[in-house]
Design a binder for these strands. Structure first.
Lengths: 195, 195
DNA sequence: GTCTATATGTTGATAGAC
DNA sequence: GTCTATCAACATATAGAC
Protein backbone atom coordinates (compact mmCIF):
# COMPACT_ATOMS: atom_id res chain seq x y z
CA UNK A 1 0.00 0.00 0.00
CA UNK A 2 1.12 3.59 -0.64
CA UNK A 3 2.78 5.38 2.26
CA UNK A 4 0.40 7.69 4.09
CA UNK A 5 1.10 11.37 3.70
CA UNK A 6 3.68 12.53 6.19
CA UNK A 7 2.28 16.04 6.19
CA UNK A 8 0.96 15.85 9.71
CA UNK A 9 4.34 14.70 10.90
CA UNK A 10 6.10 17.50 9.03
CA UNK A 11 3.72 20.07 10.47
CA UNK A 12 4.31 18.77 13.97
CA UNK A 13 8.06 18.84 13.57
CA UNK A 14 8.05 22.39 12.24
CA UNK A 15 5.70 23.50 15.02
CA UNK A 16 7.92 21.91 17.64
CA UNK A 17 10.97 23.77 16.40
CA UNK A 18 9.29 27.11 15.74
CA UNK A 19 7.45 27.18 19.06
CA UNK A 20 10.73 26.58 20.85
CA UNK A 21 12.52 29.29 18.92
CA UNK A 22 9.84 31.97 18.73
CA UNK A 23 7.31 31.01 21.36
CA UNK A 24 3.78 29.83 20.72
CA UNK A 25 2.14 33.16 20.16
CA UNK A 26 4.75 34.62 17.82
CA UNK A 27 4.63 31.49 15.69
CA UNK A 28 1.97 31.92 13.02
CA UNK A 29 0.21 29.18 11.12
CA UNK A 30 1.77 30.65 8.02
CA UNK A 31 5.22 30.06 9.56
CA UNK A 32 4.44 26.45 10.33
CA UNK A 33 2.87 25.85 6.93
CA UNK A 34 5.80 27.35 5.08
CA UNK A 35 8.45 25.44 7.04
CA UNK A 36 6.53 22.21 6.45
CA UNK A 37 5.99 22.74 2.74
CA UNK A 38 2.24 22.57 3.30
CA UNK A 39 -0.16 25.23 1.95
CA UNK A 40 -1.66 27.38 4.66
CA UNK A 41 -5.26 26.38 4.06
CA UNK A 42 -4.37 22.72 4.23
CA UNK A 43 -3.12 22.95 7.81
CA UNK A 44 -6.71 22.85 8.98
CA UNK A 45 -7.20 19.42 7.52
CA UNK A 46 -4.73 18.09 10.09
CA UNK A 47 -5.41 20.42 13.02
CA UNK A 48 -8.71 22.10 13.78
CA UNK A 49 -7.17 25.09 15.53
CA UNK A 50 -3.83 26.54 16.49
CA UNK A 51 -4.44 25.37 20.05
CA UNK A 52 -4.74 21.82 18.75
CA UNK A 53 -1.23 22.15 17.36
CA UNK A 54 0.36 23.17 20.63
CA UNK A 55 -1.53 20.41 22.38
CA UNK A 56 -0.08 17.91 19.94
CA UNK A 57 3.40 19.36 20.42
CA UNK A 58 3.16 19.03 24.19
CA UNK A 59 1.86 15.49 24.06
CA UNK A 60 4.58 14.61 21.60
CA UNK A 61 7.21 16.03 23.95
CA UNK A 62 5.80 14.10 26.88
CA UNK A 63 5.79 10.84 24.94
CA UNK A 64 9.34 11.41 23.75
CA UNK A 65 10.48 11.93 27.32
CA UNK A 66 8.68 8.82 28.57
CA UNK A 67 10.31 6.80 25.79
CA UNK A 68 13.74 8.09 26.81
CA UNK A 69 13.05 7.33 30.47
CA UNK A 70 12.03 3.79 29.59
CA UNK A 71 15.40 3.35 27.94
CA UNK A 72 17.25 4.67 30.98
CA UNK A 73 15.39 2.23 33.19
CA UNK A 74 17.39 -0.58 31.65
CA UNK A 75 19.96 0.45 34.23
CA UNK A 76 18.99 -0.84 37.68
CA UNK A 77 20.83 1.98 39.49
CA UNK A 78 18.56 5.03 39.99
CA UNK A 79 21.64 7.20 40.47
CA UNK A 80 22.90 6.27 37.02
CA UNK A 81 19.44 6.88 35.59
CA UNK A 82 19.50 10.42 36.94
CA UNK A 83 22.92 10.77 35.39
CA UNK A 84 21.39 9.81 32.03
CA UNK A 85 18.69 12.43 32.52
CA UNK A 86 21.39 15.05 33.05
CA UNK A 87 23.00 14.21 29.73
CA UNK A 88 19.88 15.55 28.05
CA UNK A 89 20.38 19.27 28.75
CA UNK A 90 24.10 18.92 28.07
CA UNK A 91 23.49 17.65 24.57
CA UNK A 92 21.37 20.65 23.61
CA UNK A 93 23.01 23.33 25.73
CA UNK A 94 23.49 25.75 22.84
CA UNK A 95 19.88 25.42 21.83
CA UNK A 96 18.83 26.12 25.41
CA UNK A 97 21.13 29.12 25.70
CA UNK A 98 19.64 30.49 22.49
CA UNK A 99 15.95 29.88 23.17
CA UNK A 100 15.52 28.57 26.70
CA UNK A 101 14.32 25.13 27.76
CA UNK A 102 11.65 24.02 25.26
CA UNK A 103 9.62 22.48 28.06
CA UNK A 104 9.89 25.20 30.68
CA UNK A 105 9.52 28.22 28.44
CA UNK A 106 6.39 26.85 26.82
CA UNK A 107 4.93 25.99 30.20
CA UNK A 108 5.42 29.55 31.36
CA UNK A 109 4.01 31.08 28.22
CA UNK A 110 0.86 28.99 28.31
CA UNK A 111 0.34 29.58 32.03
CA UNK A 112 -0.30 33.21 31.12
CA UNK A 113 -2.95 32.29 28.58
CA UNK A 114 -5.66 31.85 31.19
CA UNK A 115 -7.71 29.16 29.42
CA UNK A 116 -7.80 25.55 30.50
CA UNK A 117 -4.29 25.44 29.09
CA UNK A 118 -2.78 25.60 32.56
CA UNK A 119 -3.31 21.88 32.98
CA UNK A 120 -1.89 20.88 29.63
CA UNK A 121 0.95 23.39 29.76
CA UNK A 122 2.84 21.65 32.53
CA UNK A 123 2.29 18.10 31.37
CA UNK A 124 5.82 17.41 30.21
CA UNK A 125 7.52 19.14 33.11
CA UNK A 126 5.27 17.27 35.53
CA UNK A 127 6.20 13.97 33.89
CA UNK A 128 9.88 14.79 34.28
CA UNK A 129 9.42 15.83 37.89
CA UNK A 130 7.48 12.67 38.73
CA UNK A 131 10.10 10.46 37.14
CA UNK A 132 13.01 12.19 38.88
CA UNK A 133 11.24 12.07 42.23
CA UNK A 134 10.64 8.35 41.78
CA UNK A 135 14.37 7.80 41.28
CA UNK A 136 15.17 9.56 44.55
CA UNK A 137 12.53 7.42 46.22
CA UNK A 138 14.18 4.30 44.85
CA UNK A 139 17.42 5.57 46.33
CA UNK A 140 15.71 5.29 49.70
CA UNK A 141 15.21 8.98 50.32
CA UNK A 142 12.20 9.92 52.44
CA UNK A 143 12.51 13.51 51.19
CA UNK A 144 12.37 12.43 47.55
CA UNK A 145 9.80 15.04 46.65
CA UNK A 146 11.93 17.89 47.97
CA UNK A 147 14.97 16.57 46.15
CA UNK A 148 12.96 16.26 42.95
CA UNK A 149 11.95 19.89 43.20
CA UNK A 150 15.53 20.88 43.83
CA UNK A 151 16.76 18.84 40.87
CA UNK A 152 14.25 20.16 38.34
CA UNK A 153 14.33 23.71 39.68
CA UNK A 154 18.08 23.85 39.27
CA UNK A 155 17.83 22.67 35.67
CA UNK A 156 15.05 25.08 34.80
CA UNK A 157 16.70 27.99 36.55
CA UNK A 158 20.06 27.29 34.94
CA UNK A 159 18.41 27.13 31.54
CA UNK A 160 16.75 30.47 32.08
CA UNK A 161 20.00 31.98 33.29
CA UNK A 162 22.03 30.54 30.42
CA UNK A 163 19.42 31.92 28.05
CA UNK A 164 19.31 35.36 29.63
CA UNK A 165 23.08 35.72 29.78
CA UNK A 166 23.52 33.89 26.49
CA UNK A 167 26.11 31.70 28.16
CA UNK A 168 25.74 27.92 27.67
CA UNK A 169 28.50 27.30 30.20
CA UNK A 170 26.24 28.38 33.03
CA UNK A 171 23.93 25.46 32.28
CA UNK A 172 26.81 23.02 31.85
CA UNK A 173 28.42 24.14 35.08
CA UNK A 174 25.24 23.59 37.09
CA UNK A 175 24.56 20.24 35.45
CA UNK A 176 28.03 19.07 36.42
CA UNK A 177 27.36 20.15 39.96
CA UNK A 178 24.10 18.20 39.94
CA UNK A 179 25.92 15.11 38.69
CA UNK A 180 28.24 15.20 41.67
CA UNK A 181 25.33 15.91 43.96
CA UNK A 182 23.44 12.87 42.66
CA UNK A 183 26.51 10.72 42.99
CA UNK A 184 26.77 11.64 46.66
CA UNK A 185 23.45 9.85 47.17
CA UNK A 186 24.56 6.61 45.56
CA UNK A 187 27.96 6.48 47.24
CA UNK A 188 27.35 7.94 50.69
CA UNK A 189 26.34 5.51 53.43
CA UNK A 190 24.55 8.22 55.35
CA UNK A 191 22.50 9.16 52.31
CA UNK A 192 23.99 12.20 50.64
CA UNK A 193 23.91 15.87 51.35
CA UNK A 194 20.66 17.60 52.09
CA UNK A 195 21.62 20.92 50.61
CA UNK B 1 2.45 74.86 40.80
CA UNK B 2 -0.18 72.38 39.67
CA UNK B 3 0.73 68.69 39.98
CA UNK B 4 1.88 67.19 36.72
CA UNK B 5 -0.43 64.64 35.19
CA UNK B 6 0.17 61.21 36.65
CA UNK B 7 -0.95 59.49 33.47
CA UNK B 8 2.46 58.24 32.54
CA UNK B 9 2.84 56.76 35.98
CA UNK B 10 -0.58 55.13 35.78
CA UNK B 11 0.21 53.69 32.38
CA UNK B 12 3.48 52.28 33.64
CA UNK B 13 1.86 50.71 36.67
CA UNK B 14 -0.87 49.07 34.60
CA UNK B 15 1.69 47.84 32.06
CA UNK B 16 3.83 46.38 34.82
CA UNK B 17 0.91 44.42 36.23
CA UNK B 18 -0.61 43.32 32.93
CA UNK B 19 2.70 42.24 31.43
CA UNK B 20 3.34 40.09 34.48
CA UNK B 21 -0.11 38.51 34.37
CA UNK B 22 -0.61 38.08 30.63
CA UNK B 23 2.84 38.39 29.15
CA UNK B 24 4.06 41.21 26.93
CA UNK B 25 2.61 40.07 23.66
CA UNK B 26 -0.86 39.19 24.92
CA UNK B 27 -1.12 42.58 26.60
CA UNK B 28 -2.58 45.06 24.15
CA UNK B 29 -2.26 48.81 24.28
CA UNK B 30 -6.03 48.88 24.67
CA UNK B 31 -5.66 46.77 27.84
CA UNK B 32 -3.10 49.12 29.28
CA UNK B 33 -5.08 52.20 28.31
CA UNK B 34 -8.28 50.86 29.81
CA UNK B 35 -6.69 49.82 33.11
CA UNK B 36 -5.04 53.22 33.40
CA UNK B 37 -8.13 55.22 32.59
CA UNK B 38 -6.32 56.76 29.65
CA UNK B 39 -7.83 56.86 26.15
CA UNK B 40 -6.10 54.57 23.69
CA UNK B 41 -4.92 57.24 21.33
CA UNK B 42 -3.38 59.21 24.17
CA UNK B 43 -0.97 56.45 25.09
CA UNK B 44 1.24 57.54 22.23
CA UNK B 45 1.77 60.91 23.80
CA UNK B 46 3.67 59.20 26.62
CA UNK B 47 5.24 56.27 24.76
CA UNK B 48 6.24 56.23 21.10
CA UNK B 49 5.75 52.51 20.64
CA UNK B 50 4.72 49.41 22.54
CA UNK B 51 8.37 48.43 22.75
CA UNK B 52 9.06 51.71 24.54
CA UNK B 53 6.57 50.65 27.20
CA UNK B 54 8.23 47.34 27.94
CA UNK B 55 11.58 49.07 28.00
CA UNK B 56 10.25 51.49 30.60
CA UNK B 57 8.80 48.61 32.62
CA UNK B 58 12.12 46.78 32.66
CA UNK B 59 14.10 49.84 33.63
CA UNK B 60 11.57 50.59 36.33
CA UNK B 61 11.95 47.06 37.70
CA UNK B 62 15.73 47.36 37.67
CA UNK B 63 15.66 50.66 39.51
CA UNK B 64 13.23 49.30 42.09
CA UNK B 65 15.54 46.39 42.76
CA UNK B 66 18.60 48.60 43.07
CA UNK B 67 16.72 50.79 45.54
CA UNK B 68 15.80 47.75 47.62
CA UNK B 69 19.36 46.49 47.51
CA UNK B 70 20.63 49.84 48.70
CA UNK B 71 18.34 49.52 51.71
CA UNK B 72 19.61 46.05 52.50
CA UNK B 73 23.17 47.28 52.39
CA UNK B 74 22.54 49.14 55.64
CA UNK B 75 23.31 45.77 57.17
CA UNK B 76 27.08 45.12 57.15
CA UNK B 77 26.63 41.33 57.07
CA UNK B 78 26.40 40.03 53.46
CA UNK B 79 24.73 36.86 54.74
CA UNK B 80 21.92 38.89 56.27
CA UNK B 81 21.63 40.90 53.06
CA UNK B 82 21.07 37.72 51.11
CA UNK B 83 18.48 36.77 53.68
CA UNK B 84 16.68 40.05 52.94
CA UNK B 85 16.78 39.27 49.24
CA UNK B 86 15.10 35.94 49.96
CA UNK B 87 12.23 37.65 51.73
CA UNK B 88 11.26 39.17 48.39
CA UNK B 89 9.94 36.02 46.66
CA UNK B 90 8.31 34.90 49.91
CA UNK B 91 6.23 38.05 50.12
CA UNK B 92 4.74 37.57 46.64
CA UNK B 93 4.70 33.78 46.48
CA UNK B 94 1.05 33.57 45.43
CA UNK B 95 1.58 36.04 42.66
CA UNK B 96 4.55 34.02 41.44
CA UNK B 97 2.63 30.76 41.60
CA UNK B 98 -0.14 32.35 39.55
CA UNK B 99 1.94 34.10 36.89
CA UNK B 100 5.59 33.16 37.33
CA UNK B 101 8.44 35.43 38.33
CA UNK B 102 7.82 38.85 36.76
CA UNK B 103 11.51 39.24 36.01
CA UNK B 104 12.31 35.77 34.71
CA UNK B 105 9.19 35.19 32.64
CA UNK B 106 9.56 38.49 30.83
CA UNK B 107 13.21 37.83 30.20
CA UNK B 108 12.34 34.52 28.56
CA UNK B 109 9.55 35.96 26.48
CA UNK B 110 11.66 38.78 25.11
CA UNK B 111 14.59 36.49 24.40
CA UNK B 112 12.39 34.84 21.78
CA UNK B 113 11.65 38.16 20.11
CA UNK B 114 14.88 38.21 18.13
CA UNK B 115 15.37 41.98 18.00
CA UNK B 116 17.96 43.84 20.01
CA UNK B 117 15.68 43.10 22.94
CA UNK B 118 17.94 40.31 24.12
CA UNK B 119 20.18 42.83 25.84
CA UNK B 120 17.41 44.77 27.53
CA UNK B 121 15.40 41.68 28.42
CA UNK B 122 17.84 40.37 31.00
CA UNK B 123 18.74 43.69 32.54
CA UNK B 124 16.92 43.19 35.83
CA UNK B 125 17.92 39.58 36.25
CA UNK B 126 21.52 40.50 35.52
CA UNK B 127 21.40 43.23 38.15
CA UNK B 128 20.10 40.74 40.70
CA UNK B 129 22.75 38.20 39.77
CA UNK B 130 25.54 40.75 40.00
CA UNK B 131 24.38 41.92 43.39
CA UNK B 132 24.03 38.42 44.80
CA UNK B 133 27.42 37.41 43.45
CA UNK B 134 28.97 40.44 45.08
CA UNK B 135 27.57 39.37 48.46
CA UNK B 136 29.17 35.95 48.14
CA UNK B 137 32.41 37.65 47.23
CA UNK B 138 32.18 39.78 50.34
CA UNK B 139 31.72 36.56 52.29
CA UNK B 140 35.18 35.62 51.08
CA UNK B 141 34.16 33.01 48.58
CA UNK B 142 36.47 32.55 45.60
CA UNK B 143 33.67 30.72 43.78
CA UNK B 144 31.24 33.58 44.26
CA UNK B 145 30.14 33.52 40.63
CA UNK B 146 29.17 29.86 40.77
CA UNK B 147 27.29 30.38 44.00
CA UNK B 148 25.48 33.35 42.49
CA UNK B 149 24.35 31.24 39.57
CA UNK B 150 23.19 28.54 41.95
CA UNK B 151 21.31 31.05 44.09
CA UNK B 152 19.47 32.78 41.24
CA UNK B 153 18.89 29.56 39.29
CA UNK B 154 17.22 27.97 42.30
CA UNK B 155 14.90 30.93 42.70
CA UNK B 156 14.01 31.10 39.04
CA UNK B 157 13.53 27.35 38.75
CA UNK B 158 11.40 27.19 41.88
CA UNK B 159 9.26 30.03 40.59
CA UNK B 160 8.70 28.22 37.31
CA UNK B 161 7.90 25.00 39.12
CA UNK B 162 5.54 26.67 41.58
CA UNK B 163 3.83 28.32 38.63
CA UNK B 164 3.58 25.13 36.58
CA UNK B 165 2.26 23.06 39.47
CA UNK B 166 0.25 25.97 40.84
CA UNK B 167 1.76 25.30 44.24
CA UNK B 168 3.25 28.30 46.07
CA UNK B 169 4.67 25.98 48.74
CA UNK B 170 7.26 24.69 46.30
CA UNK B 171 8.78 28.16 46.07
CA UNK B 172 8.59 28.72 49.83
CA UNK B 173 10.18 25.37 50.54
CA UNK B 174 13.15 26.06 48.28
CA UNK B 175 13.59 29.58 49.61
CA UNK B 176 13.76 28.21 53.15
CA UNK B 177 16.39 25.76 52.02
CA UNK B 178 18.38 28.60 50.46
CA UNK B 179 18.17 30.57 53.71
CA UNK B 180 19.79 27.71 55.61
CA UNK B 181 22.31 27.28 52.85
CA UNK B 182 23.29 30.95 53.00
CA UNK B 183 23.55 30.79 56.77
CA UNK B 184 26.02 27.93 56.51
CA UNK B 185 28.40 30.38 54.82
CA UNK B 186 28.20 32.96 57.55
CA UNK B 187 28.50 30.51 60.44
CA UNK B 188 30.86 27.85 59.13
CA UNK B 189 34.56 28.47 59.78
CA UNK B 190 35.56 26.35 56.80
CA UNK B 191 33.33 28.35 54.49
CA UNK B 192 30.04 26.56 53.98
CA UNK B 193 28.92 23.71 51.79
CA UNK B 194 29.84 23.66 48.15
CA UNK B 195 26.74 21.83 47.01
C1' DG C 1 -2.07 68.15 26.14
C1' DT C 2 -6.17 65.40 25.30
C1' DC C 3 -9.24 62.69 22.75
C1' DT C 4 -12.02 60.45 18.58
C1' DA C 5 -11.82 58.27 14.49
C1' DT C 6 -9.47 55.58 11.44
C1' DA C 7 -5.63 53.80 8.55
C1' DT C 8 -2.69 49.79 7.95
C1' DG C 9 -1.13 45.36 8.53
C1' DT C 10 -1.41 40.77 10.35
C1' DT C 11 -3.54 36.48 11.80
C1' DG C 12 -6.67 32.66 12.71
C1' DA C 13 -10.04 30.54 10.36
C1' DT C 14 -13.48 29.38 6.42
C1' DA C 15 -15.52 28.62 1.63
C1' DG C 16 -15.49 26.15 -2.04
C1' DA C 17 -13.17 24.58 -6.55
C1' DC C 18 -10.65 20.54 -7.94
C1' DG D 1 -7.50 14.94 0.39
C1' DT D 2 -5.50 19.15 -1.51
C1' DC D 3 -5.18 23.90 -2.51
C1' DT D 4 -6.47 29.11 -3.62
C1' DA D 5 -8.78 32.91 -2.32
C1' DT D 6 -10.66 35.45 1.11
C1' DC D 7 -13.25 36.79 5.36
C1' DA D 8 -13.56 38.83 9.93
C1' DA D 9 -11.30 40.22 14.00
C1' DC D 10 -7.92 42.41 16.16
C1' DA D 11 -3.72 45.37 17.23
C1' DT D 12 -0.39 48.92 16.45
C1' DA D 13 0.00 53.23 15.07
C1' DT D 14 -1.43 57.84 12.99
C1' DA D 15 -4.31 62.01 11.64
C1' DG D 16 -6.25 65.71 13.06
C1' DA D 17 -10.06 68.21 15.72
C1' DC D 18 -10.46 70.46 20.14
Amino acid sequence: MPPKSDKRERLLKAARRLIHQQGFQRTTLADIAEQSGVPLGNVYYYFRTKDEIVRAVIEDRTQRFLALAEGWEQDPDPGKRLHCFLEMPVSIDRSIAAHGCPVGSLSQELSKKGDGHAELAGQTLRAQLDWVTEQFRLLGRADAELLGHQFIATLQGSSLLANTLNRPEVLIEQVERLKQWVQSFSAGEKGGKTT
